[in-house]
Write a protein that binds this DNA or RNA. Structure first.
Lengths: 146, 146
DNA sequence: ACAAAAATGATACTTTGTATCAATTGGAGG
DNA sequence: CCTCCAATTGATACAAAGTATCATTTTTGT
């Protein structure tokens, strides 16, 4: 009976075998995962597709999981508890030509977050910044072909 | 024969009836659209599903379209020419509890873009910033239920 | 231990595409 | 202008990622 199971029952849901197994697996999953990845794990223990997807939805409702939005195969899930407060972010530049992704070393939002939280009234937990452009290499290649 | 059709033929592709019709529709579409939306339009003129998706892919390759990444139903397409340079952006705060979305009135990135472009070597065209948190209302509701 | 309510899993269906392939068409060259 | 053939099309079947239905099973309050 881990912390997720308690939270689950407190929310008024029954703790069944499939749910118990799923919540056990969840403890190890510190990185974002897709529904399909989770389904494959659970299916090896005989748990059906519908149940996995239904349980994912419940966990989102309860707040144990959050959806994170990654460019590639964009529906991912992540433990809400794994989000380290305002430090959770994901900042990068994507080349619209070749798709190359460069992660930003420094977060351009670091000085703005507190002010935005104050003005907006939100308690901020993190962010996701995608800059779009043309990388230097593609830019050079395009110049040549003119 | 509009600018898209010229660019299409210059790239070595045949300008067929379905493609001509699709490129005509494209001229009006200034907002992001999904493949499905485009398919519905084209299908009314008797153009097949496969052709619409194939042509979309070609237009991405050629650079007439870019994919934009919106949270809701995340695969959208947009005219590359419609992107207004560095002014193209989309900044907002999303409540992880109720899903409420608040658009930011001022762009927190406005002062950082030039420096990032310089350091990264990318020619920046726009960005997309999602802040995540709990809105004041959900935050208050959660306090109460403890 | 029992009954009611909740949850399950098999199955069929939906949505958003992709692969196949026989039939058609655009356009380069004569 | 006409012909030919590679490129393209659309019908169809298939795939991946879910969702809806419903008869059966499991939990839990008493």
């Amino acid at each position: 009976m881990n912390r997720f199971m308690e939270q689950f029952m407190k929310s008024g849901y029954k703790l069944t075998r499939p749910r118990r197994l799923l919540l056990e697996r969840l403890e190890d999953l510190d990185r974002p995962f897709t529904a399909e990845e989770l389904y494959e794990m659970m299916n090896r223990e005989g748990i059906g597709r519908a149940t996995v997807f239904r349980t994912l939805k419940l966990l989102l409702d309860i707040g144990i999981l959050v959806r994170v939005h990654l460019e590639e195969g964009c529906q991912h899930y992540q433990l809400a508890a794994g989000l380290p407060g305002e430090d959770h972010h994901h900042d990068r530049i994507i080349c619209r030509f070749c798709g190359k992704i460069t992660d930003l070393d420094e977060c351009p939002m670091r000085n703005d977050v507190a002010a935005i939280a104050k003005r907006s009234g939100y308690r901020l937990q993190g962010h996701h910044l995608d800059l779009y452009g043309i990388c230097s290499r593609c830019d050079a290649d395009n110049q040549k072909s003119h």
